[in-house]
């Protein structure tokens, strides 16, 4: 796994891109330009970017309702993502999916999912497909501490384990399943210990430390590519925003949020890069500006794109009716 200056700066830039993309999405949602509802992963970029930095383009990812970060980190196109959030015809899903259903099969993103834990049995199927096709791809499922309590997780993990499938189960424990605290809903406290029940390696990682995530992911990916089976990673992190934009957040205190704000994964990584003398203040500002320019372009693309024709709703259901 490379950790040269160039690689680390790219990781930093991707984290900034995820943060700025979601900040922008929040603003345009509040302004009423993005319909429906959106779930932001602000604060969780260490996990999304750390994991995806270890993946190849042909590796598979399933993500969740909180999936913008995973998609951007896997290489999704910002213009088509933004257009999809705006419900435009030029979006990834031609306006049929929205934030919760973005997919890009050309880069292995098998989709976000509106059903909590919905992606896990799917990723086990992708893992089985890899094994049957005898390639060295890996398949990664992102899910949350809330999803961890659903039955499909058990079935998906057990099947991946007995067949030694090249799968990473990446639990982003952001402390809350919507409004329900993890320490209330998860019987054993930690989640990674559940891996032992499937004879699968399980590891608890500081999810706000992108390099720690990257290191754990790299060894899990190597195991998977070598045919040694699945791994469970519990990336402990925190969502700094509500469950959805507009969430009144009565289930937690501002003090608690402040504690985690101090552990912001991007600031943490930025300080580390500065200490290594890889990143100056000036360079950091340049990165922010470059990202902002890219996002402005994506925003303009989305805003200037047409809405789908109402009748477009009837297309894309069957590949041959």
């Amino acid at each position: 796994m490379s950790s040269d200056k160039q690689t680390l700066l790219e990781i930093y830039r991707t984290m900034v891109t995820v943060r700025r993309f979601e900040t922008m999405a929040g603003e345009y949602f509040a302004a009423g330009q993005i319909p429906g509802f959106i779930h932001l992963s602000i604060g969780q970029e260490g996990s999304s970017v750390g994991v995806c930095s270890c993946l190849r383009k042909d590796d598979y990812v399933v993500t969740t309702h909180r999936g913008h970060g995973h998609m951007i980190a896997k290489g999704a196109d910002l213009k088509r993502m933004t257009a999809e959030l705006f419900g435009k015809k030029t979006g990834y899903c031609k306006g049929k999916g929205g934030s919760m259903h973005i997919a890009d099969f050309s880069i292995g993103i098998l989709g976000a999912n509106g059903v909590v834990a919905g992606g896990l049995p799917i990723i086990t199927g992708a893992g089985l497909s890899i094994k049957l096709r005898k390639t060295d791809q890996v398949a990664v499922a992102f899910f949350g501490d809330g999803a961890a309590n659903r039955g499909p997780v058990h079935e998906a993990m057990n099947m991946a384990a007995i067949w030694k499938l090249p799968v990473l189960f990446v639990c982003e424990n952001n402390q809350y399943a919507s409004t329900t605290p993890m320490h209330y809903a998860c019987s054993a406290g930690d989640l990674y210990t559940r891996a032992a029940a499937y004879d699968m390696p399980g590891e608890k990682i500081n999810g706000n430390d992108v390099l720690a995530v990257r290191e754990a992911t790299a060894s899990a990916v190597a195991r998977a590519r070598a045919g040694e089976g699945p791994t469970f990673l519990e990336n402990v992190t925190y969502r700094l925003k509500g469950h959805y934009e507009g969430d009144p957040q009565k289930y937690r205190t501002t003090e608690e949020i402040e504690i985690w704000r101090q552990k912001d994964p991007i600031e943490h990584f930025g300080r580390m890069l500065a200490q290594k003398k890889y990143l100056t203040k000036k360079h950091a500002a340049q990165i922010r500006e470059a990202v902002q320019a890219e996002l402005s372009e994506a925003l303009a693309f989305a805003q200037n794109s047409p809405f789908p024709e109402p009748g477009d709703a009837m297309a894309d259901l069957y590949s041959n009716p």
């Binding site: 049995p121 086990t124 199927g125 499909p152 057990n158």
Partner: peptide
């Protein structure tokens, strides 16, 4: 594991 079986079908069908 009927949930897993059905989900595996979906994941495998999407990947060739």
């Amino acid at each position: 594991s009927e949930t897993g079986i059905a989900g595996c079908g979906v994941g495998a069908a999407m990947t060739g």
